[in-house]
Amino acid sequence: MPVLAYCVTTAEVALKVAQTGVAGMTVESVDESGLRCFVSRRESELPMSSLATREEALAFHSVLQELFRQTTIIPFRFPTLLADEALSAHLREHAGQYRDTLARLKNMVQMEIHLGFGVAESPESLNVSGTQYLRRRQGQRRELEELAERFREAGAIRSWRKRDSARGVRCFALVQREGIADFQRQAAGVTVGSEIGVRVTGPWPPTEFLKEK
């Protein structure tokens, strides 16, 4: 029977989870090689199309959030559907990697900072030459990089990663679960130029840090 996989955690932790998850399916756990994987078994009569909706993505998120509030989790992307035996085989094969990652990220959460200048303007809309436009974009880019650095220095961060986004720069901070409030307070103390938009979100499961750099 196909299963929808939510996340993996260690088998030692006792966790409470909602009875129902995506599409009203029961959430259950599967133990394999010292890991506990939360899944829903897809009833054969349940059409695939019923899973691929915004509501079901939110239901998936709710299950993850409930577990994430209790412990460190490694989520699967939605929707990860696979045969029961394929999931067990995957967990068996990669049990060591999962256990090491869960140990490394134990009690850690991911906070995110989105920095950007809003909607990108074209040279035509600004009524400037291409060179001037590119210089302006370069300056904005530098400003965002410097601001990202100020955020990085502001908080008690274990690890820091950043990457370009469509609107600017997206920064990921790995912080201790107990340090969330401190991080938010320190982030709130960073001075930001009036043209720059900033959004701080989290805590999220530390998915950007699954791979060690």
């Binding site: 196909p2 996989a5 996340c7 993996v8 059409p47 695939m48 199309s49 899973l51 691929a52 993505a57 998936f60 998120h61 993850l64 490694i74 989520p75 699967f76 992307r77 939605f78 929707p79 990860t80 559907l81 696979l82 394929a86 999931l87 995957h90 999220w204 499961p205 998915t207 950007e208 699954l210």
Partner: peptide, 15 residues
Amino acid sequence: VLNSGVIIHGNLVIS
């Protein structure tokens, strides 16, 4: 939920 987390390489069925 759509872009973060583990991808299991293999066949992924979507609809």
